[in-house]
Each structure stands twice: as C-alpha cells, then as structure tokens.
Design a protein around this nucleic acid. Structure first.
Length: 271
DNA sequence: CCAGCCCCCTGTCGGC
DNA sequence: TGCCGACAGGGGGCTG
C-alpha cells in the first residue's frame, strides 16, 4: 500500500497535531503489533515522552521522542491518524496512543502486517537501507555505480529497499514506464542514457506522488480520511489492457519478483 | 548474488 | 446467491 509518497504525506500531516504533544497512555489489543521491544516495555517506555519531530526514512514513519525513536511501518494496509475520540469507528485499530490534549493517535491495520517500534537508532530495525531517492546526494552517477555488477531484473532491484529506499510496486512500474525500460532488463545492461532517464523518472514519479498526496487504490487514505489523487495520474500501474498514453498499444501485466508488473511492450522493449 | 517460494493476515472481487 | 481461488501498495526467511 503505502510507498514513499504515501508515507511522506502521512508524515507531513501528522507534524502539526503531534509535535509538542506528550504521551499519556498506550492501549493495544494485539501484542504482535509491537515488533520491538515487548509490548509491555513499549507501553512503559513511551508513556511520558513528548513528540519532538516527525520524519520519514524509507517507508518508515519516525517520531523523535525525548529518549527514543517511535517508528511505524504501515506495510500493506496500515493507517496512522489522529482522532478526537478513542472510538473512531474503525474496527481495525490495534494500537492507540492517548495524547495530553485528549486526542488519540490511532494505528489501524486490516491485514495486521504493520508494526510499531521503539528504538534508539533506525539501524536496529533497518540496518541496510539504501539511499533516499529524493535527497540531493542520490545522483545519476550514484545510481550508475549501484547498478554496476548487479545482474538482477531491474524491477526486482527497484523494489529492494537496500538498493534504493522507498520505492514500491506502483512507483517502480511508473518509473520504468516513464524511463521506457522493460521491467525484466538486467540491471547492469542499462546504458548511460537509460540510467539518466531512470534516475530522472524515479525522482519525478515520487515527487508527483507526493504533490498529489499519495495514491488511494484500495486501503490508503490520507490521515484526514480523504483519498489521495496520485492514482489519477498513473500511466502503467493498474492499466492492464488500456491503451498506453504514449503509443496507444495495450498495457500488459506480468509477474516479476512475485509482484504484479505493468508495462507497455512497445515503449519498453525487451532488449 | 539471485530466482523462486513460503509466510505473516484479512478483505475484496471475479468466475462458476 | 454462495463458495473458492486469486490477488492486494511490504518485507523477512529459506532453498537451491
């Protein structure tokens, strides 16, 4: 569900309601929602800490507290939002943090893949994250260096968070479509021009996603409950059988790295 | 290093 | 209408 643009949208909307607030208490109905430390320790330690900053690293939401980092990964169907009531009418809320102004930070997740963490450093839970694709230091040269010697399918590599952080299934397809690169191409077979195009495309599609406040295909909603609009601007993802916006040929769907993969066989040639 | 599978879970949708 | 398999935006782990 949420990829970099959706997580970034959540982070931006949570800053105003959370920064400066103190945790009064923590409620959960399913201990496994807390990945580390134990749910009991998590609750005890988080209580009394104040939110100082809300940031994003890869697809993690990272809250800087007094002593710890409070991190959240939404995985496929997770949602994180502030509610004015402790009964938001959401049957999938598994963790609630009561704030000192009476509001609640709710973590909701239908599929229960999402997790929360209380740590000192992101390295504890994600030691091998790749570069942030929207940072200035993610240059085309860096991308070329990282592709060098990698023989994996380029789509599988884009999904690998140790290669580049934050790209998921949707934006991988959209990036390869825009760069006109077939998803099954070997990563080390891209020529200099294709690498420059891919670099520009990754950044462009992610920034566009953020500007449209994320994509709401199914579960994702902005913290205010509204749908993002990024999905209205997709060219490949979910467009199977529909005419390519560039050439008119039907978009094809295949499976790559066990994920549905959409591309234009005419604009993204196999070789 | 890499492809392929399984698993963690639940909801939705299309086919029969 | 009802059942059933396939599939879903993520990621960790194992095998060969």
């Amino acid at each position: 569900m949420p990829e970099l643009p959706e997580v970034e949208t959540v982070v931006r909307s949570l800053r105003e309601p959370l920064v400066g607030r103190c945790v009064e208490s923590v409620w959960y109905d399913w201990a496994k929602v807390v990945k580390t430390p134990s749910a009991e320790q998590f609750t005890a330690r988080l209580q009394g800490q104040t939110f100082h900053a809300i940031t994003r690293r890869a697809k993690y939401i990272v809250c800087q507290m007094d002593q710890d980092l409070f991190a959240v990964h939404l995985k496929m169907t997770g949602r994180l939002y502030v509610s004015e009531t402790d009964h938001p009418g959401d049957r999938w809320v598994h963790l609630r943090v009561r704030l000192d102004n009476g509001l609640h930070l709710c973590f909701s997740d239908a599929r229960r893949f999402g997790r929360v963490y209380l740590i000192n450093d992101m390295y504890e839970i994600a030691p091998n994250l790749g570069p942030e694709p929207l940072e200035a230091d993610f240059t085309a040269d860096i991308l070329r260096e990282r592709l060098n010697g990698r023989h994996r399918q380029i789509k599988a590599l884009l999904l690998d968070q140790s290669f580049v952080a934050g790209v998921g299934n949707i934006y991988a397809d959209e990036s390869l479509y825009r760069a006109q690169i077939h998803p099954l191409r070997a990563a080390d077979s891209l020529n200099a021009d294709e690498i420059i195009r891919l670099h520009e495309s990754i950044r462009h599609t992610l920034e566009l996603g953020i500007n449209h406040e994320g994509a709401s295909i199914n579960w994702y909603r902005k913290p205010d409950g509204e749908r993002g609009e990024s999905q209205d601007y997709f060219n490949a993802y979910g467009k199977e059988g529909q005419p390519c916006t560039r050439c008119g040929q039907p978009i094809v769907k295949i499976r790559v790295a066990q994920r549905g993969t959409h591309y234009c066989p005419n604009c993204q040639p196999e070789k």
